[in-house]
């Protein structure tokens, strides 16, 4: 089995006093070793929640209510807290949006790196320190020998995100969950971080689950992409296919809505309305109130992802055989 991570029918619920909200609903995906899977979606689509569920960092009262998560064939979604903590960092690393909150402001970055290394790898203190310097050099921080003794606030935003990447890579995990790693950064820095992440993961054979709302980042980083809508996967497939030949009407609309240079249009393609709130997800296909090619079946029956082109799309039109919907 080359499948590093397998997620089957994952369901994440948030019990509230007004009833249970389903943030992630029947999500199945897999990531192969060394592969970059992009997960895109608009806010509230459940993409971050899926990532958090995989690394076991769901904020209570959120909980995994169904399905299973397998890392190299071993179930990890029902592990006790201590066992999961051993996996986090060692097997699965994490990079979050805000580098400031991922680093402890009271400790030198070198000490944070050394601590992570010693927790997970059988190294001596001296070796761990040498490795920390090496890691900072790997992520392109100038004069790493001095910088290990600096505190997080002494780094700029882009440099801080590099430190976070070094921290995530410290124990050479097989998988990294990167949740909006470049959203807080300026475009010029974004490009630096993306190419760094790509290069390092390629060199070390690390697989990445890249959670973002930015199709541009996905386009140049991911091998495959999953498009999420209202807690479900709308479409999943090779990145070229999804971006160039989207099958699901939502993906079609999403791609058309992105303004792009050299595209001289007076108006952008617009998907009317907004994503439903979690407490008001429509019956049938969750996208049906906004879908331009909706028909009666969409109103009553919820489509599961089904083969479409080289990937899967959760749309009855696809099953009808209509090669991607006319919009």
């Amino acid at each position: 089995m080359s499948q590093l991570l397998e997620v089957n029918h994952l369901r994440v619920e948030f019990p509230t006093r007004r009833g249970t909200l389903v943030a992630v609903d029947d999500v199945s995906l897999h990531i192969d070793a060394g592969e970059v899977l992009g997960v895109v979606g608009e806010s509230g689509a459940g993409k971050s929640m899926t990532g958090a569920a995989i690394i076991g960092l769901l904020e209570p009262p959120g909980r995994i209510a169904g399905g299973e998560i397998l890392l190299e064939g071993r179930r990890i979604d029902n592990l006790p807290y201590a066992a999961m903590r051993a996996i986090r960092g060692r097997q699965i690393g994490a990079i979050f949006q805000d580098p400031l909150t991922s680093l402890n402001p009271l400790y030198k970055v070198g000490d944070q790196l050394v601590e992570t290394i010693l927790t997970h790898l059988p190294l001596s203190l001296a070796d761990a320190k040498a490795r920390a310097v090496q890691l900072l050099e790997d992520v392109g921080i100038p004069s790493p020998g001095e910088r290990v003794n600096h505190y997080p606030h002494q780094f700029s935003g882009g440099m801080r995100q590099r430190v976070v990447i070094a921290l995530a890579l410290a124990a050479e995990p097989k998988l990294i969950i990167a949740d909006e790693p470049t959203t807080a950064l300026d475009v010029s820095i974004q490009a630096q971080i993306i190419s760094l992440l790509k290069r390092l993961c390629h060199e070390k054979g690390t697989a990445v689950m890249l959670v973002t709302h930015d199709m541009g980042v996905i386009a140049e980083t991911a091998d495959r992409v999953a498009v999420m809508y209202a807690g479900r996967i709308a479409e999943i497939g090779p990145v070229q296919d999804v971006i160039k030949r989207p099958k699901h009407p939502y993906t079609v609309g999403l791609m058309g809505a992105i303004p792009s240079m050299g595209m001289d249009v007076e108006r952008l393609t617009q998907i009317d309305g907004s994503m439903p709130r979690l407490n008001a997800i429509p019956k049938g296909c969750a996208f049906n109130p906004r879908c331009p090619v909706v028909f009666d079946r969409c109103l009553v029956e919820r489509p599961d992802p089904m083969p479409a082109g080289n990937g899967l799309a959760a749309c009855w039109r696809v099953m009808q055989g209509a090669e991607h919907a006319e919009v």
Partner: peptide, 10 residues
């Protein structure tokens, strides 16, 4: 979000 951004820009 991008789909909403398109609405507002339009």
């Amino acid at each position: 979000d991008v789909s909403v951004q398109a609405q507002i820009l339009n």
